[in-house]
Design a protein around this nucleic acid. Sequence first.
RNA 1: GGCCCCUUGGUCAAGUGGUUAAGACACCGCCCUUUCACGGCGGCGACACGGGUUCGAAUCCCGUAGGGGUCACCA
Length: 484
Amino acid sequence: MADIRVRYAPSPTGHLHIGNARTALFNYLFARNQNGKFIIRIEDTDRKRNIEGGEKSQLKYLRWLGIDWDESVDVGGEYGPYRQSERLDIYQKYAKKLLETGHAYKCYCTEEELEREREEQRARGIVPHYSGKCRHLTKEEQERLEKEGRKPNIRFKVPEGKVVTFNDMVKGEVSFETKDISDFVIVKSDGWPLYNFAVVIDDHLMKITHVLRGDDHISNTPKQILIYEALGWEPPIFGHMTLIVNEQHKKLSKRDETIIQFIEQYEELGYLPEALFNFIAFLGWSPGGEREIFSREELIEIFDPKRLSKSPAVFDQKKLLWMNNQYMKKQDLDRVVELALPHLIKAGKISEKPTPEELEFARGVIALYQDQMSYGAEIVELSEIFFRDDIEYDEECQQVLNEEHTPEVLRTFLQEIEGIENFERDEIKAALKRTQKASGYKGKKLFMPIRVAVTGATHGPDIASSLALIGKEKTMTRIKKLLN
RNA sequence: GGCCCCUUGGUCAAGUGGUUAAGACACCGCCCUUUCACGGCGGCGACACGGGUUCGAAUCCCGUAGGGGUCACCA
């Protein structure tokens, strides 16, 4: 078999979306697994929709996820250019060929006319369908229309009475009848190619062997195959992956606010790219077996497109949280600090240019929460008790503080810590022990008053570690304040 | 509506004619932790429905229902 060549072809109309990231990721996994080549081509033929920086952002976040490529706009390659806007002459050449061989024709209908036609069809309850009225225009008629100032677009002449069948890598055999496909535009009146046309030319010229893309492209596939046939080319192998859907089982729409959809946002929130990579790989695919945590290398090793699911996958945010936490727990503290610290700073808990003491403190706080943190930004609410100056005791706390034995516990503990020089975890633990002996209280009765008094909360990390972090001075001040 | 695709617990998902129908997330309970979290153990909970084929069907066939995708001078 020829060398496998696959591609991811984003249009720079926005930032890297979770669905596109998945398409890219599976193509990448497939290429690497097969020792093939992974190409990124920029499909920027819709100038109205392109956004500033879209292309850069796409590539940046692909890289962030740990995906690399062999040929593209930035790394070059022998089949360039890799930006469709720079290949206009190529498309023109093949459009001309299609015109000459009678596989395409010029259509002079304006957008307004077509829209009106569709409106009428809809009103009459039939499927909007191009009538094909420009199909048999004579030379004279064409000239007359052109004199009116009309600029033609080019339509592909869909052969009649044919069945287009292809063997889809994930869906199996799929067929479409050409009677359900109307003559579609391949080149706009301004000379720019349209998706269904450009994609065929490029995939062929770039020697793409497999096209793995979203399910939403499946009805484009027969159109593209028809173009391959008209040009006398061999189509690649297609595979249409099921869509990712939201909790309402609808295709993820970019406007859907209930799900964080852009990779960029995950980076901002302090997610780990390798966790996201792992998670995305399991969106509509599974290796079989019980294991779910895999590194990128392992996924490359085991990836098999035959195991791509046929039914849509709901994007389960809670599972993502869980998975990211799995990775978070295994990271070096340095890495977790890198992810979490910026959020403490942004929230104003730590100053923009932290002093060594602040840094030390933040590190300590983050270490305490590493095992339960799902993503970096979570540290802010998690560690809230470590950043308050004046504690306000809520009702639950008040209850603890109002208990009869509380003052005695606090007083005893205060005495026991007074003499501690190194206010560290072990020393505090020892003081706790002594407090227990001296006061006669143990368990909840011993710990709760202290926890509440000093942290202002009934829950939190290990009490000794917490106090060590809060420091002797604050600990004592808070207890004293209560005792008065 | 036409065309195309899909249908195993709330969610993901294993399963390819014979299984007590895995596992994970979520949820619930217990244990660990003198709190919380992490972790451990356990529980809840599924083959959309109806017909076939077969000794035997989650697995094969047909139909029904439901869901989704798509019908642009967007990609």
